[in-house]
Design a protein around this nucleic acid. Structure first.
Lengths: 287, 287
DNA sequence: TCCATTAATGCAATTTACGCATTAATGGAT
DNA sequence: ATCCATTAATGCGTAAATTGCATTAATGGA
C-alpha cells in the first residue's frame, strides 16, 4: 500500500468523480481507476459504490476517509519533525561545563545556540573531573568544556577560550594591586585551592605558577567547587587563585587581582559523533 | 512512500544488519539496500549511519522508528476496523417499529442480531406514521417495520409476520370467549381505536372487520399509541381492537379475545441501499 | 429512443523493482 | 603490518508494475 494511493483515494472521496480527480492529481482516469481498485483489493474493502454514472463512498470508505485524513496529517507532521532532527534543528544536547564559566562564556554560548536553533533543547550539567571522559564516551553527555586538553582516543578537543588567573582576596585585604604582592606576603597567606587531580593541566598550571613565584603556598583547604572557594574567601578564611571568569558571578566583598598566568578552556566531543545537533552546536561555538 | 518500505525500515532498525534483515523479509540485500535508500531520499532524512561494517540508527532514524511503529499499528487497526465495516460486522443501523411489537418479535430480532453480529450498534426508534416514508428515504432510519405494505419507488417491502386481531376488554367485562360476542352487545361497547390514517392498511382492516361484523362501532377515542389505548381499557373506559402482539406486554387486568381477523407486519428498506450492515440484518430477519 | 457522460478495460510503452554478481571498505586475526 | 572474512553499495539484465491511449459498456437525461 502506497501513501500516494491513499492521497488519490482522499481526493476522489472529496470529488466523487474520476475524471475531475484524475485531472487534479495529474494522472489519467485510467491510472486513477486502477489505483483505487488496487487499494480496494489490497485492503479487502470496497471503498466506493460506483456505476458508470455515479460514485459514492461506502460506509467503510467514509470511515477510512475520516481516519486516513487524520493519519496522513499525523504522518506529514512526523516526517517534518524528522527532517528537523536530520538538520539538527530539533533534538537535545547535553553540555557539561565547569562552574567557573557559568556566568561568563556559558550565557553567551547559550544565547548563540538558542538564537540560531530556537527549537533545540539544551541540558546543562556539571560532571566531576574523574567522570568527564567516561560520561562523554558513554553518551551521558555530548559536549564538555574543560580546563584540560583531552587526548583520549575517540575524543576531539579544541581550545575555545583563555582565562587569566587572578588572586582572589576579601575586600578588606591589604592586597590592592598586583604591585602589593611579594614573595614574603604571599608566603604568609592561607590559600584555598582546587583539588589537585591527577593529570589535570589546570591544577598543574596553578602549581607551576607557585613554582615561578618561588612560593610554597600554605594550603588551608582544597575544594572542587569554585562557589565554595569564593564563599570561604569572602568570609576571610583565606585567599584563592581562580580564573577571571568567576568575576562575572557578581559576588560582592571580593577583589580579583589579575596575575600574569593563563588557563585555557577546551571543548571536547566524541570524534565519531555525527549527530547533526552536535555538528550545528560545534559550528556555532568554534565558528 | 510505501508501507512495505517502512516495514523494511523497522525490521532493519531492529536487526541493524542488512543481510539478516533481507533474509527475514524475504528479499535480497540488494533490494533492501535500495529500498532504504529510496526511503531516505524521499524523506530527505538519513536514517542509518552505515559503513561497510556497522549499521546504526541516526537520531532521526531513532525518532522515526518509535513513531512509525505506533503509526503502523494504528493503521493496521484502522484497516481491520474498515474490513469489519465492509463485512457488515461493525456499524450502526437505525430500526423503527410500531410500539405493538416491542415486546413480541422485536426482542427476538434483537437477540438474533446481537448473537450473529455482537459488534453492531442498533438504534431502535419510533416514527410517526406520516413520517415513515420520508425518514426512510432521507436516511434518518435504515429499516422500518410497519403494518402497511409500502410500495413507494425506491423502497422494498417484505411481509415478515402475521398478527391476530383481538378484542381487548377489562378483566371484569362480561365478554369471556369469542362466543360471548354478538352484534347487539358489540353495538353497545365504547371503542378505543387507532387513528384512521390515510392509506393505512392497518386501520383499513379494522374498518373492514366492523363491516364484516355488520357493526358500526361507537368510537369513544382515537389514539396512535397502543400503550395509551391499553391503559384506557384497563380503567374500564372502553374496549379496543388490537393485534395479539400486545399480549406480550404482560399488562395485568386485561383479557384478549382472539378474533378471526389478521393484520400483517412488513419490513421496509431502501431498495438501493447496499450497506453491508443492512444486508446482514435483512438476511437474519428474512432468513 | 438517442446521445452525452463516464467508469472500466485491453494493449503497448515506459518506468520501476528485483536478483545476481561484483566491488569496495573495514575490522579482526595472524 | 598484512591478509582475509564480512558486508553494504552498485552495475546490469530481466521481470513486474504502472501509465497513457483508445475503446467499451453502462446510464441518466433530452
Amino acid at each position: 500500500m502506497d501513501f500516494q494511493q491513499i492521497r488519490y483515494f482522499l481526493a476522489l472521496a472529496k470529488e466523487l468523480h474520476f475524471w475531475n480527480t484524475a485531472g487534479k492529481m495529474n494522472i489519467t482516469q485510467s491510472a486513477l481507476s486502477r489505483q483505487i481498485q488496487s487499494l480496494e483489493s489490497e485492503l479487502g474493502v470496497l471503498l466506493f459504490e460506483r456505476n458508470k454514472r455515479n460514485v459514492k463512498l461506502t460506509p467503510a470508505g467514509k470511515f477510512l476517509k475520516d481516519k486516513w485524513e487524520v493519519e496522513l496529517n499525523e504522518m506529514e507532521f512526523i516526517h517534518q519533525f524528522a527532517r528537523q532532527i536530520h538538520l539538527g534543528e530539533r533534538g537535545t544536547i547535553r553540555i557539561a561545563h565547569p562552574d567557573s564559566i557559568s556566568a561568563s562564556i556559558i550565557p553567551d554560548i547559550m544565547a548563540s545556540i538558542s538564537n540560531a536553533f530556537p527549537r533545540l533543547q539544551i541540558e546543562l550539567v556539571q560532571v566531576l573531573y574523574e567522570n568527564q571522559q567516561e560520561f562523554l564516551l558513554n553518551y551521558k553527555i555530548d559536549l564538555i568544556i574543560t580546563r584540560d586538553m583531552n587526548s583520549a582516543p575517540g575524543i576531539r578537543s579544541e581550545k575555545i577560550y583563555t582565562d587569566n588567573l587572578s588572586i582572589v582576596v576579601p575586600e578588606n585585604h591589604p592586597y590592592r594591586t598586583i604591585d602589593d604582592l611579594s614573595k614574603e606576603t604571599l608566603q604568609q597567606q592561607k590559600f584555598i585551592l582546587p583539588i589537585k587531580d591527577e593529570g589535570s593541566s589546570y591544577s598543574d598550571i596553578i602549581h607551576q605558577m607557585f613554582k615561578a613565584l618561588e612560593v610554597v603556598p600554605d594550603v588551608y583547604l582544597h575544594s572542587e567547587f569554585g562557589s565554595t572557594i569564593i564563599a570561604l574567601v569572602r568570609k576571610g578564611l583565606g585567599v584563592a587563585i581562580l580564573p577571571d571568569s568567576y568575576m562575572y558571578h557578581e559576588s560582592p566583598g571580593l577583589r580579583f587581582i589579575k596575575l600574569p598566568f593563563k588557563t585555557d578552556l577546551y571543548l571536547n566531543w566524541r570524534a565519531e559523533d555525527h549527530n547533526p545537533v552536535l555538528s550545528n552546536v560545534l559550528k556555532l561555538i568554534l565558528n
